[in-house]
Design a protein around this nucleic acid. Structure first.
Lengths: 156, 156
DNA sequence: CTCGGTGCAAAGCTTTTGCATCCGC
DNA sequence: GCGGATGCAAAAGCTTTGCACCGAG
């Protein structure tokens, strides 16, 4: 992660502004999140840090994630499963997700029309819309042997 | 609910086709869901039925909801909270949701551009997209006394 | 030194599962 | 009557909370 320092500076500024302490745990969590490239859940992050011999608790992970979400460095997703997934968001252009109903893989995409919908509906309903979440769910196209073109799994 | 009979016929046909039993509990749950006009969670539905002296268990509610979702009579939402919310979907045009970040009220809207995004991205990523979920999150416009124009709550 | 933040474990909530009983077919 | 569906309660899984201790300011 080349811009990890930039991200830490932003987090530091946010904590300052909120009168929150700048603890080593918070920066360690931020660092480990920005080391990941994919979506992750709390348990995954917690274990990743345990394995690296960080001394952190789940409680602190949850607490820090809330802070990171509040300052926009992380986004939280509920992809229809029980467990929430998180994702770093600095330096990443806003994107949405397509979820495969066969293998649950997640694909990312962008479409500028979402911004238009957002602004149209904001005006109509009298809201300042500042965030959105669009998920598409679908079945993959398959080849003649019923194998998914993307993950090679054979579909029923 | 004027079209409850229609809905029951659809459910019956679906159960037939799947070789599933047509138990009174399943139809009672369907009936109670279609009696509701708003989003609801499992506990709310379960208690509503308990209060009306139906003899149902949470397990059956969950099981039946899965069936109703599968046949398209109910949709499930995860609005970023722990608890899933459900909603009847027959005779309702497909719509999406705007969630107020101040009071958590949910507003519904439609925008045909979502269908276009769905079909564009389906083609691009080689998926048959058959479902989507779009949520907009925002703050309400307020009057000069900082009172929300919609729910009259005073916003910090 | 103070008091907010942390680790740990227990509690809380939603959802799932196991099992004996029931009843649709 | 058979086997799937149900009710109940216990278990499982994710998240939050309580409390004593620690360490940032």
């Amino acid at each position: 992660m080349e811009n990890i320092d930039e991200v830490k500076i932003l987090f530091r500024a946010f904590l300052d502004e909120k009168g929150q302490r700048k603890t080593p745990e918070r920066f360690a969590i931020l660092e480990q999140i920005y080391d990941l490239t994919d979506h992750f859940d709390v348990e995954f992050l917690f274990l990743k840090m345990k394995n690296k011999n960080y001394r952190v608790s789940r409680a602190t992970v949850y607490n820090t994630l809330d802070l990171l979400i509040e300052c926009g460095l992380v986004v939280k997703h509920q992809f229809g499963t029980l467990t929430a997934l998180y994702e770093k968001s600095y330096g990443y252009k806003q994107h949405d997700h397509l979820i495969c109903r066969k293998c649950n893989k997640i694909f990312e995409f962008c479409d500028p029309r979402i911004q238009q919908i957002q602004s149209t509906m904001g005006k109509l309903l009298k809201f300042k819309v500042e965030q959105h979440s669009l998920m598409l769910y679908g079945d993959p196209e398959v080849d003649i042997d019923s194998k998914c073109l993307r993950c090679q799994l054979t579909i029923n």
